[in-house]
Design a protein around this nucleic acid. Sequence first.
DNA 1: CGTTTCCATGGAAACGGTTACACGGCACGA
DNA 2: TCGTGCCGTGTAACCGTTTCCATGGAAACG
Lengths: 338, 338
Amino acid sequence: MRSVTIRDVAALAGVSVATASRVLSGHPATSPSSRERVEAAVADLGYRPDARARSLRKARTGTIGVLVSDVRNPFFAEIAYAVERRALRAGMATLVCNADESVDQQDRYLDLLVSQRVDAMVVAPQGDGSGSLQEVLGLGIPIVFVDRTLASGGTGVPSITSDNRTGLREAVTHLAGLGHRRVGLVAGPHETSTGRERLRAYRDAAAAAGLDPDPALVVQGDFQQASGAAGARRLLDLADPPTAVVAADSLMTLGALSVLRERGVAVGADVSLVGYDDLPAFALATPSLTVVAHDPARMGALAADAVRDLLAGRAATSTVLPTHLVVRGSTGPARRPA
Amino acid sequence: MRSVTIRDVAALAGVSVATASRVLSGHPATSPSSRERVEAAVADLGYRPDARARSLRKARTGTIGVLVSDVRNPFFAEIAYAVERRALRAGMATLVCNADESVDQQDRYLDLLVSQRVDAMVVAPQGDGSGSLQEVLGLGIPIVFVDRTLASGGTGVPSITSDNRTGLREAVTHLAGLGHRRVGLVAGPHETSTGRERLRAYRDAAAAAGLDPDPALVVQGDFQQASGAAGARRLLDLADPPTAVVAADSLMTLGALSVLRERGVAVGADVSLVGYDDLPAFALATPSLTVVAHDPARMGALAADAVRDLLAGRAATSTVLPTHLVVRGSTGPARRPA
DNA sequence: CGTTTCCATGGAAACGGTTACACGGCACGA
DNA sequence: TCGTGCCGTGTAACCGTTTCCATGGAAACG
C-alpha cells in the first residue's frame, strides 16, 4: 500500500508534476483548468503532501523545537502550550521535549532537534552550556532561551525570563516584616540560572533585613516535588527550625506543603510558607498560599514572538518579565519561640 | 553557510558516500580503516545527519504523534510525558499537540501529523470521528486511542482507557451512603467518550441508589476550569441546591472548588465534593479532596507499548485500567435541610 | 502581418540521505 | 592452479517534493 504521491496526482489530472506542484502550493501561474483537475485528483486520491520531502527541497521545515525541563510541571506546560499555540497560528508545528532536569537528556534532545532540522528552538537550558548546547549554539540555528539562561552570560541568545530577584526579595522582606528571623529556603539546582538567582536574591534580602544568616537554613532541591518534601523535612528537623519557609518553584512548594500537613504544622501560624508560581490550586489550598507569581503564558507567547522575529531575520529582544508577591493566608506573624 | 552533508564527510574521508553512509548507520561491511577515517571526518566537520532525508528513503520517520486535548491539564501532561519517555527509550521522537477540546483544532493537527508522516499516533479523540479522524483511520497509520474512544465503537483501534463507570459509581454510592439525596454532577462534553460514560454511570448509580433524579442536577461542562466554576454556580443557585457535587474531570474540579470557597461554603460539611483525577494538589487542599483516581502515567506507558506492538506488526491489546474512589475529607454526611 | 511579451507548461536537476547491484581482490578448498 | 565465495567498496537509482530553465502558443503591439 504505497502512499499516494504528487506523481499519482499529476498522472490522474493529466498534467506534469511541476504543474501539480504549482497548483498545490498556490503558485499564480496556473490555468483554471489544470487547477480544477489537480484539485479533483487530490480529492479523489486522498493525496497528502509529504512535509519531509517538501522541507528537504525548501530551506525550512516549518517546525520549531521546545525543550523544557518537565511538562508535568504546570509552569512549563503553560509555556509549551503558549508557544505551541502561537506557532500553530503561524502554520508551524511544535516538537515538545522534556529534559527532565538532566543535562544528558537535554543533550540527547538537542541532537534530535538538530537532526530533525527544526527551524528554531525555544529552550529552558540546563547546566553551564558545556555539553551539546554550546555546540548547537554554534550551528546558527535561531534559539531563544525561556525562563532560564546560561551561566556564561553573553551568548547573544535572546531570552525571555522573569525577574527572579524582585519576587524573592519581596517574599523575604514580607516575612521579615512579619517578625520572622529564621527563614528557610528550599533552593533550586545550581545548574539553573533560576536556581542561582533565587538563592542569591534570598541571601541578599536576608542580609539586608538582618535575618539569621545560618547556612543550614538553605537546603538544596532539584525543582521536583520529592526534593521539596525532603528539604522541608530537613528544615523542620533542625535543632532550631525556621519559622518561615520559601520554596523556589511550584513542585517543591507542593512537596513542602505536603510535609507541613503530614506533620500537622499549622501553615501560616506555626510556620509560614511562601510558594513559587501561582498555580490555580495554590489559591485554593487552606490557608491559600502566599506565592511569588509570574506569568508563564506570557513568557511562552513572547518566546514565540522572539522566534518569529529571528526567523524573519529581525533581531529579537530579550525581555525580563516582572514577578510579584501575592500575599495570602499562608504567611502570618512569627510565633515567638516558647 | 550550507550545512555539511554526508558528501562532505565522504570527500574528507576519501571514501564514497555509500561507504560513509554505511559507517554512519553501523552497517557491518565496513573496514576498520574507513570507519576510522569517516568518524574523524564527522568529528572534524561537525556533521549532523539529516533525519528528514534519511526517513524519506527509509520507510520510517522515527517519530510518533501524541494528540491530547490540553497539556495544561495535568492528567494529559502526565500521559504525554509517559509516552514521550517510553518513545525516547526506543529512539523515537514525539510530536505533542493540543487539540484544545476542539474538533477543528484536532483536525488541523491530524493533518499536520499525517503530513509529517509520523510512524504512529497516540490520540485522545474528540467528537464522533466525523472529521479528519475517520479519514486518517483509513490511511493505515497505526493509531492508539488513549483515555477516550470513539462513539462509533468498533473501529478496531486499540485503546487504553480507564474504567470510567466504576469510579463514578463508587462516588455516587459513597455519597448516597452518607445520606445525600440530591447529588449534582458537573458533566463533561458529550463529544467525548469519557464525558458520556461518566454521565451514564452517574445516572445509573443515582437511579440504583434511589437518589433524586432531578435533571437540573446535571450541568454541562467542557473539561475546562471555567466551566467547572460556572457549573458549580448553577448548581448552588438552584432553588433546591444539591448537598453534594461530583466533578467529571480535574480542571472542572478545580473550578468547582474555587466557587465553593468563594461563596464561603464549608466543603465536606455544607456541601460534599468529589473530584476527578488524583492530582497531588488535591490531597493538599483543606479539607483534602475525595476523588476518583486513575493512573495517567500507566495509561501513557501502556499506550506507548501498544504503539510499539503495532509498529512491530504485532496486534496491540486494548486495556481498561481500574479507577477507584479515594475517600478523604471533602465528603461528609448530608446536612439535613433546615 | 511580424515581432515582442507574457503565461502556462513540462523536463530535469536539485535536496541529503540509503541501498541494490556490480565489481575487484583476496583467501580458501579442490 | 583454478574456480568459488566472501567482503569491502563505488556507482547510481531512488525517496517526494520544489524550482530553474526552455518551450510553445496566444495575445498585444507596432
